[in-house]
Computed example of a mutant assay.
Amino acid sequence: MTNTALYEIHDQRFGALIAGSAALEELYSSCRWAEGPVWFNDSNSLLWSDIPNQRMLRWVPDGGVSVFRSLSNFTNGNTRDRQGRLVSCEHGTRRVTRTEVDGTITVLADHYLGRRLNSPNDVVVHSSGSVWFTDPTYGILTDYEGYKSDPEQPSRNVYRLDPVSGDISAVVTDFLQPNGLVFSPDESLLYIADSGASHTDGAPRHIRVFDVVDGKTLRNGRVFAHIDNGIPDGMRVDTDGNLWSSAADGIHCFGVDGVLLGKIKIPQTVSNLTFGGPRRNRLFITATQSLYAIYVTTSGAQHP
């Protein structure tokens, strides 16, 4: 029997994606604003950010939680590149960085056209090695999640970092606040959240989708789905291309046609999520103060 307090089923397809008897587990509950979960299968661990506390945390099954990095520069979103290295968005330094195997940090991007970035928020890596990231102003609005400052960029863009030249190009420039982003399993599409409604009444609270051209540019942008409670933030896709998005009341799952299939209800506002575990069939969810996990019957797409 499906737990109706935990799940909302809006489309019969959702029933094939969830385990009705699965329990929602709270793994940790002492964050100020949890974000940016990323799974490391090679070390059987999860990393995530606690932005206002200026730290990144690590969770290990049967091993609990430890501090991975303190004074994290208000790191927000995280992912891994195709060599398994950690790639992070730092609000405090307004940059995107890569943590090398020896622990040193390489700056990938901190300026565009001679001006400082706003506050890189979320990041994904294409199979070509190119790094794509969003750059809203959340990290410079106040001193809570970064350092209050005026933006230097005239718009809030989505960028692509070329893996060979290191050049940065703005691939989308018409978002109010670009936030989470994720490629479809075959990388033919890029989904990008616009969470402008977080600070502006009547502003977007939707997810747009773009066709990816030659792994370098985007075209044919259109609205894919709307969030009916809160705003979209971090997102992931499963192997069938269904999109799982954060929202105020939990995780919203959309089919490839943009139809809301169902929700997993979470007690706190969800910021982000990732598929993890050895079979990538466990959803790890960052939600305000806590890290949650729940098993599903699908699995996450192989790219981070």
Rank of each mutant, 00 (worst) to 15 (best):
A5M: 11
E8Y: 05
H10Y: 08
Q12K: 14
R13N: 10
G15T: 15
I18F: 06
L24K: 14
L24A: 07
E25G: 00
Y28G: 00
S29R: 15
S30C: 08
C31G: 15
R32S: 12
A34K: 09
A34H: 08
G36H: 10
S49F: 12
P52K: 02
N53H: 12
R55F: 05
W59H: 13
G63L: 10
G64L: 10
V65E: 03
F68G: 00
R69W: 09
S70E: 15
F74M: 11
N76F: 04
N78T: 14
T79A: 00
R80Q: 12
G84D: 07
V87P: 00
R94T: 05
R95Q: 14
T106W: 01
V107N: 05
Y112V: 08
Y112F: 15
G114R: 03
D122Y: 11
V124F: 00
S130L: 06
S130V: 12
W132I: 15
F133M: 09
F133S: 07
F133I: 12
P136Y: 07
E145T: 12
G146W: 03
Y147W: 01
P151G: 01
Q153W: 05
N157P: 04
V164Q: 03
V172G: 05
F175V: 09
G180S: 06
T200Q: 04
L218E: 11
R219L: 05
R222T: 14
R222P: 14
A225C: 11
I227S: 01
I227W: 01
D233E: 06
D240N: 14
N242S: 08
W244E: 08
S245R: 06
S246T: 15
I251T: 11
C253D: 05
V256S: 03
D257F: 06
V259N: 04
L273Y: 10
L273F: 09
R279P: 00
R280Q: 15
R280Y: 13
L283C: 10
I285S: 02
I294H: 05
